[in-house]
Simulated assay, not measured.
Amino acid sequence: MQKILSTATCLLGVAAATLLGACASKAPAPAFSQDGLPDTVKVPAGHRVVLETVGVGEITYECRAKANDSAAFEWAFVGPRADLNGRDGKKLGTYYGPPATWASADGSRITGTQVAVSPAKAGSIPLQLVKANPATGSGAMTGVSFVQRVATVGGVAPALPCDAAGAGRKEVVKYQADYIFWKPA
C-alpha cells in the first residue's frame, strides 16, 4: 500500500510540474518597449500599446519624371499593401494606401498623418510615427491615437534604372515591418 501511495505521489508531482511548465510557457509576451528607438519616432508619454502587429507585404514604386526636373527620373512611391498579423501569425487586418489605412478584420479602420521618420538599417524603409485620425467603424482601431512602424526589413525603391524609356513602369518590392498601435492611457 505504501508503495502505491509513493507511486501516486510521484505521479501527482510529475503532473503538477508538467502543468506548471505548460502554464509558464503560456505567459504573455512582454509589452513593446520604445527603449532604443530614436526620440523622433517615440510615442509621447501618456499612451499605452493596445495592439502589436507584423505587416508582411509589398510596396509599389513607379518610374516617373521628378517633380522639380522633368528631364530627370526617379522611382516614386505608389503605395503599400500588407497583411497585418498578430505575433502568433494570425491575420488581424490589412494595411494599404494611399491614404495610409490600417483596417482591422472587425471592420474598424484608421488613416493617419506622418509625424516623423528616422533612418532604419541599410536597404530598409525608415521607421515612422503616424498620428491617427479618428476611426471609422467600431472595434480594434477605435481610439487609436498613434501608429509606429518599427523593425523594418526591405521595402526601399528598386535599384533598377529609371529613365525616360522606362517612364510609367512599376516595380513591386517586398517588405516587413512591425506596426504598433497606441491609445491614450
Rank of each mutant, 00 (worst) to 15 (best):
S104V: 09
L129F: 00
A17S: 05
V78C: 07
T152D: 02
T101A: 06
D83Q: 14
E58T: 14
A167V: 13
L11E: 10
G13T: 08
Y95M: 02
G139Y: 13
G137Y: 07
P161E: 07
T18R: 08
C162W: 09
Y96V: 08
Y61I: 01
V172C: 11
S33N: 06
T152E: 00
T142D: 12
L127K: 06
R109T: 06
S118C: 02
G93H: 08
R81L: 15
A29H: 08
K121I: 11
R109L: 09
W182L: 14
L84C: 03
Q128K: 01
P28H: 10
A105W: 12
V144I: 12
A132C: 05
Q148Y: 04
S25E: 14
S104R: 09
P184E: 00
T40A: 15
L37I: 07
P98S: 09
T60C: 02
P161S: 11
R109F: 04
P158V: 06
C23S: 12
V153I: 15
F77V: 03
G79W: 00
Y96K: 14
T113A: 14
L92K: 00
W102P: 00
V43D: 05
D163K: 04
G112K: 12
T9F: 06
S124F: 04
K170I: 11
S25R: 15
L84Y: 00
G137S: 15
A177R: 00
F77L: 01
R109Y: 09
L129H: 00
R169E: 12
R81M: 15
R64S: 15
T113C: 06
